[in-house]
Design a protein around this nucleic acid. Structure first.
Length: 522
RNA sequence: GGUGCUAUCGUCUAGUGGCCUAGGACAACGGCCUCUCACGCCGUAAACCCCGGUUCGAGUCCGGGUAGCACUACCA
């Protein structure tokens, strides 16, 4: 009997959610959905010193924006206040029977399990201060707190029980360490990498709990919670692979080996250039976001740009991320979330790290932008127009102009460069275009054209094209030279959509005005 | 340093011993379309890390190198 698939995404609220974390969340989500299982979200805030205000809200809002649904644990509640640029005022709801879902709220639970390990002899109390340990490391190269060295340290293994009790009761700061048995080959079965074997000698006696803040460390909290929350598959980043054997040992120490989850360690997202894993600095340096949403870090005062604010569509980010380290069964590149859920498979996840290819991300956004309706894009374009001083434009007109130009852009903000001449008449003219397209005869051509345009029976593309082309042919002027001069008058440069599409949007009056203005200036 | 993971076009990747003359996509380049600039379409260039071994046959399996990455905290 297969057990119910239950996976979790368990970020730490230490800042904006890194794009690699988003991918981890996505793969967990796809896996859960595909198997009809549950996707949990748990907050791993066991390091009180690294907590960043707003980070939790950020994480939940980011997942919500991307459409990565949470079935259990913490999630963004639907409603107003969500998706507000700049200020994050989301409502958080907790659902499920396995809560609380913030580790900082699970102290009593961890106490119980720390005690269990202590009682069974799998763990011990240690009093060595951080300073003492640091001194030890400085003194002994490659010092490791383990079977070889623990008998030289200040812990419950080397001190009389009475002394330990006295110290603990007296409020002395201590930690609880896991007692790793030496020289044992620990086997970890990884769904992506196969069998990984590590000898326990290289593991150290990891700190499981620190009395200073009365909180467990990641390793303990993670194992206890995954067990209690009945997690079936742990899908996480490759950086966790080295500590997976420790986790296996922990499951065994608790006697939970029969329900231990399966592991899958995902390849890392690497810098686009050079070596190493992708960091926030790379984004700043190369000019692209490494976070889903913009984030204002209250703690260090930094601002991180986000995909959403850069004009990315969530479905493009999802598609892009899905293919960074995973490949479908065929040659398909464009995937909806539904298709991803159908086709996803852990054994098609790559083993090697993937360099972050921002250029491809642009292409994905281009693809998805084309699928959005002109009206929808118009709404998204409004703020950009406002930035350029266009207040309360005619929405139908904006949509029409977008329909004419959207296939030229990758992002909504880029629409401005493609559409500005529809909203603002040119006041100066591009030098290069002028040099190439504005000839000696051009003023004369434009004067003639003006007369013709003033007298056309109807102002539609077909009529204009017929009349103007007829006139050019009759006078043997050359289509290119006349039309480009005309274009310069209307646009200010030799660029833009089809000329009759421009005159159509501009209308007769504005078109004539622009030609007259150009004539007066050039 | 130690341990582990990984290794196909510039990048993401397909490839599970003969279907590979190594396929697709992004980017690059060229052409077509055309009143311009784009888009689009068509095409070109571009890779199996190295050395051994197994095999009739290796990108694919094995060994050894090399390289890259990760981990090596009272952080996750």
């Amino acid at each position: 009997m297969e057990r119910r698939v239950r996976v979790r995404f368990a970020p730490s609220p230490t800042g904006a959610l890194h794009i690699g974390g988003v991918r981890t969340a996505l793969y967990n989500y796809l896996f859960a959905r595909q198997h009809g299982g549950d996707m949990l979200l748990r907050i791993e805030d066991t390091d009180s010193t690294r907590f960043v205000p707003g980070a939790e809200e950020y994480i939940l809002e980011a997942l919500d924006w991307l459409g990565i649904g949470i079935d259990e644990g913490l999630r963004a509640a639907k409603g107003e206040g969500l998706k507000v640029k700049g200020e994050r005022k989301i409502e958080i709801e907790a659902i499920g029977e396995h809560g609380p879902y913030r580790q900082s709220e699970r102290r009593e639970i961890y106490h119980k399990y720390v005690k269990q390990l202590l009682d069974s002899g799998h763990a011990y109390v240690a009093f060595d201060t951080p300073e003492e340990l640091e001194a030890k490391r400085a003194q002994i190269p490659n010092f490791q707190y383990d079977a070889r060295t623990r008998m030289e340290m200040r812990n419950s293994l080397t001190m009389p029980a009475e002394e330990v009790k006295r110290l603990v009761n007296g409020g002395e700061k201590y930690v609880v360490r896991f007692k790793v048995e030496p020289n044992e080959d620990v086997h970890v079965h990884d769904l992506i990498r196969g069998e990984v074997v590590i000898n326990s000698n290289i593991l150290d006696d990891k700190v499981l709990y620190k009395s200073a803040d009365d909180l467990p460390t990641y390793h303990l909290a993670n194992i206890v919670d995954d067990h209690l929350m009945e997690i079936s598959h742990v899908i996480r980043g490759e950086e966790w692979l080295p500590s997976a054997p420790l986790h296996v040992l922990l499951y065994r120490a608790f006697g939970w080996q029969d329900t231990m989850p399966e592991f899958a360690h995902l390849p890392l997202l690497l810098k686009p250039d050079g070596n190493g894993k992708l960091s926030k600095r790379d984004g700043d340096r190369l000019g692209f976001p490494v976070f889903p949403l913009e984030f204002h870090n209250e703690k260090d005062g930094t601002v991180s740009s986000g995909y959403r604010e850069s004009g990315y569509l969530p479905e493009a980010v999802i598609n892009f991320l899905a293919l960074l380290g995973w490949h479908g069964s065929g040659d398909q590149e464009l995937y909806t979330m539904e298709e991803l859920i159908k086709d996803f498979s852990l054994d098609r996840v790559s083993k090697s790290g993937a360099k972050f290819d921002y250029e491809k991300g642009k292409w994905f956004n281009h693809q998805y932008l084309q699928q959005r309706s002109d009206e929808e894009l118009a709404q998204m374009f409004l703020p950009v127009l406002k930035e350029h001083g266009i207040e309360n434009p005619d929405l139908a007109l904006v949509a029409k102009v977008i329909g004419l130009t959207k296939d030229r852009v990758n992002f909504v903000p880029e629409l401005w460069e493609q559409t500005n001449y529809f909203f603002v008449a040119p006041t100066e003219y591009d030098e290069k275009s002028l040099a190439k397209r504005w000839k000696e005869d051009s003023p004369r051509h434009m004067k003639e054209l003006l007369e013709i345009l003033e007298n056309v029976p109807t102002w539609d593309a077909e009529t204009l094209d017929g009349i103007v082309m007829g006139w050019i042919a009759e006078k043997e002027y050359g289509v290119g030279i006349v039309m480009n001069a005309f274009r310069i008058c209307l646009v200010g440069a030799a660029r833009g959509v089809h000329i009759w599409a421009i005159t159509d949007v501009l209308g007769k009056e504005e078109t004539l005005k622009r030609v007259k203005d150009a004539l007066a200036r050039l």
